[in-house]
Design a protein around this nucleic acid. Structure first.
Lengths: 151, 151
DNA sequence: GCCTCATGCCACTATTTATGTTACATGAGT
DNA sequence: ACTCATGTAACATAAATAGTGGCATGAGGC
């Protein structure tokens, strides 16, 4: 697959939860995400273990929010997913003997590390509830002047 | 393969060029990088097209520097490689119809974009010659107090 | 002029990772 | 009992980098 979209999917699911009702099945989520229900369960399993969502088996079961979305940051969701790798570039060897390669790894590692720190800082400073508010703003905007795709 | 290591390899090669002599074959480079000569040619081909390196066929041919390393930034090398994707995470759909997904994409795209901007800024502000100097510093350090692997 | 060396390029394989899919067990509710 | 939904295992699919062999091309040396 091209890129890891689990964070995108997990956030998308969280934002739909309140709208869709207190309990939603993996199958319904899968339809929304255009994804397989098993993939949904796999992805959301981390959120359950992290105490962000609940899952219930059996008749009337499904997924529900375990806590308010203003207490969940994007970083919480990212960590709940197991902190998948952020970058697709990286060093060739982890612990090279070559001094030159060590220097290259050090320099690139430092640059990537700072970019990651900035990224994580922003993920920590944004709650899923913040995101929900931006959805409302976006909806208002697109209602006024037509849809505008972003990114 | 785990991650894209072309930037790492290209920088490693550039830093070894002056030391190895004016002309180096793909096969010799491949030995240093523990990589296949064809992979070396593929990777370095971009640097040739970007005017960073020269390649010569035939007897006595091989790779050589096309200009001084203080005129080449890490960003130049990255662009010469075709600007491979930096992040391994991203949106699930590029242009979703769902407003919620649009907002998620927008928010994540903004965060990733800022991290990328910081990354590129640092790549632009570092020349390969700067890296070479850090190699010398690293060598001096490890000569004094034993090897210390980084990253 | 022929031979050798090295790049350029092609096609194919190997490896890794996220995602898709099927199948089956478990447990909750009617 | 029967049905529904999760949990999980096992395998298939897709995409990208890296590895590999083969062949054409061109530059030097003899």
């Amino acid at each position: 697959m091209r890129r890891d979209s689990r964070l995108s999917v997990a956030l998308h699911v969280l934002l739909h939860m309140e709208e869709l009702g207190p309990v939603v099945t993996s199958e319904a989520i899968g339809r929304l995400m255009k994804a397989n229900p098993v993939v949904v369960r796999r992805t959301m399993g981390g959120l359950r273990d992290a105490g962000i969502m609940c899952s219930a088996k059996g008749h009337g079961g499904g997924w529900s929010l375990a806590r308010k979305l203003d207490s969940v940051t994007l970083a919480d969701v990212y960590e709940a997913l197991g902190m998948p790798a952020l970058f697709s570039i990286g060093p060739r060897h982890e612990s090279p003997g070559c001094l030159v390669e060590q220097a290259v790894n050090g320099a690139l590692g430092k640059v990537l590390g700072e970019a990651e720190a900035l990224l994580m800082k922003q993920l920590r400073s944004t709650s899923v509830a913040d995101l929900a508010r931006s959805v409302q703003r976006g909806a208002a905007r697109s209602a006024k002047k037509g849809t505008a795709t972003h990114v």
